[in-house]
Structures are given as C-alpha cells and as structure tokens.
Amino acid sequence: MYAVAVALCRALAWGYFASLRLEVLALTRHPEDWSVRARWRLTGLPLHLLLLRWYRRDKRTLLRSYDALSTFFLNSQGLIRCHRVDKLMPAPTAVPEPKKLLVAAALAVALARP
C-alpha cells in the first residue's frame, strides 16, 4: 500500500508541475525511537503558469518551491512501517536581483542628458 500511495502522490505532482525536481536537504537517524527524519524540497514550474506565460524566455521567476519535513518510522527489520509528513510549506521565492550593469547604464544615460 505504501508503494501505491507514493506512486499516486508522484502522479499528482507530475500532473501539477511541468518540470519537477526533488532535493533531499538533510537526513538524520534517531535510534531512540527507530525513526529517520528527512528534510526535502520540491521545486517545479506549475503547469498553469507555464500555459499562461508561455511567451517568457526566462521562466526561472515562475518556479515554485515547497519545503517539507518527513519522519519515517522503522520496524525491527529496518523497513518503513509509517511515513508521516510533519511540515509542508511554500519556500520563499528568490527575488531576482536587477541587472546592475543595465541599471547603471540607464542611470548614466539619464544623468548625461542636459
């Protein structure tokens, strides 16, 4: 059942995102309660934004990220008996910095005119 649930979540994610990337940020083992905690990030381009803004050449500003913390509880054989997603939240989007050279050139042209 666990494999079916993971496959269903994966299919739903591929249905929502046009391009999808999963990053595992940290893994920690906790032998006192037989658990493994994973911090991960899901980054992708939502399909509806791709369809609405297809004309944009640089689509990096349209990417969305979600950070999550999962806990995997293990049984005595080391197999996963319970997987709990503790937190799932949107990650702050990176604001692209303005092109400094372009801004400086525009400022120089504006100041050079009498």
Rank of each mutant, 00 (worst) to 15 (best):
L25M: 12
V109P: 07
A108H: 13
Y66D: 00
R56M: 08
R41A: 05
R29L: 11
T93Y: 06
G78R: 07
R21H: 05
D67E: 14
P31L: 07
L88F: 15
N75R: 14
A105H: 00
A3R: 14
D86V: 04
A104E: 13
H83F: 06
R60V: 01
L63Q: 04
R21S: 07
A68C: 09
A104T: 03
R21F: 00
P46N: 02
A108W: 10
L107Y: 07
V103Q: 15
L51H: 04
W54H: 11
P31Y: 06
E32R: 15
G44V: 03
L62D: 10
C82L: 10
K87E: 11
A38T: 03
S65Y: 07
R37Q: 09
A13G: 08
V103L: 14
L102N: 08
T61K: 11
L49P: 00
V103I: 12
L88M: 15
L50R: 01
V24A: 01
T61Y: 04
L50Y: 05
P92L: 06
C82D: 01
A112E: 08
P96K: 02
R41S: 01
L27S: 03
L69K: 08
P92H: 01
P92Q: 06
S65M: 13
V6W: 02
F72C: 12
A38Q: 03
